[in-house]
């Protein structure tokens, strides 16, 4: 496996008021693999994910320092053109939040934002990405319907397609299946496995079994610290830290 790292997190610290949310994070995320950030609820894994594309800007109470390198560029550096960086990362949130517009416009939105306005081009791209998430056949007759008319599972796939449409290099997913039924969850997991050939995928989850199913690389977090990280095989079969062993035995849940 190509173990080149895509993202390098260096000495990352994040505070909210007096609370130290992320403590000295030092970790690399390998390219074109599926990395799982694993840990019990409230351990800071979602915050870590949001720091990756600096959505932490939305929360003025968060103080962040350290650096996160994406292709040698520091994301947290204030001079970095953040919209360009964010475009390189698709985001999938816990429950689907389709934009308040039609199915078609949800996909076309990102393309239009980046200046692609030719109708022919848009139509082709929309079909392409909806097919990639195997949604095209289900919605091709009602592209003009409001996106909220879709089922939750379909909405989540739409959100994935929407993210893919701006041609990212990385997909960030924050417990993407927690609001879904088992069948839709399975679909999403399968999509991830398919997509990791071309994208670097980071999935946050607290479901151990899901991590076992899909992970190539695991980052295990507890109380704002990275306890252990490594290739999935080593991590699950040969954990080094006591905490990891406890967690894998199920002592936390």
């Amino acid at each position: 496996m190509g173990n080149e790292s895509k993202i390098k997190i260096d000495n990352l610290n994040l505070h909210i008021g007096k609370n130290h949310i992320l403590k000295n994070i030092h970790v690399s995320i390998p390219e074109r693999q599926l990395t799982v950030i694993l840990g019990p609820s409230g351990c800071g894994k979602t915050t870590l994910l949001k720091s990756l594309n600096r959505l932490t800007d939305l929360y003025p109470e968060m103080k962040i320092d350290g650096s996160i390198f994406l292709n040698e560029e520091d994301i947290l550096h204030s001079k970095t053109e953040i919209t360009l960086l964010r475009k390189k990362m698709g985001l999938l949130s816990q429950s689907p939040y389709p934009l308040p517009m039609s199915i078609y416009d949800n996909i076309a939105y990102g393309l239009r934002i980046s200046g692609r306005r030719k109708k022919k081009y848009l139509i082709k791209r929309v079909e392409h990405y909806l097919t990639q998430v195997s949604l095209w056949d289900e919605v091709k007759d009602r592209l003009k319907d409001s996106a909220s008319s879709l089922s939750i599972g379909q909405q989540q796939r739409l959100c994935l397609a929407r993210g893919l449409a701006v041609d990212p290099e990385i997909i960030l997913a924050d417990e993407p299946t927690s609001a879904l039924d088992p069948l839709s969850s399975k679909q999403i997991e399968e999509l991830f496995v398919k997509l990791k050939q071309r994208y670097t995928i980071v999935v946050v989850t607290h479901i151990l079994r899901q991590a076992r199913r899909i992970a190539d690389y695991v980052i295990f977090m507890y109380m704002g610290e990275v306890i252990e990280h490594g290739p999935a095989k080593d991590f699950f079969e040969n954990p080094k830290e006591e905490l990891t062993k406890e967690y894998l035995k199920g002592a936390f849940n």
Binding site: N53, L58, R86, L91, Y97, C159
Partner: peptide, 14 residues
Amino acid sequence: PRELSEASLSLGAT
């Protein structure tokens, strides 16, 4: 919902 803004921002919107 803040998540909507997050979604839009992560698509590269200002």
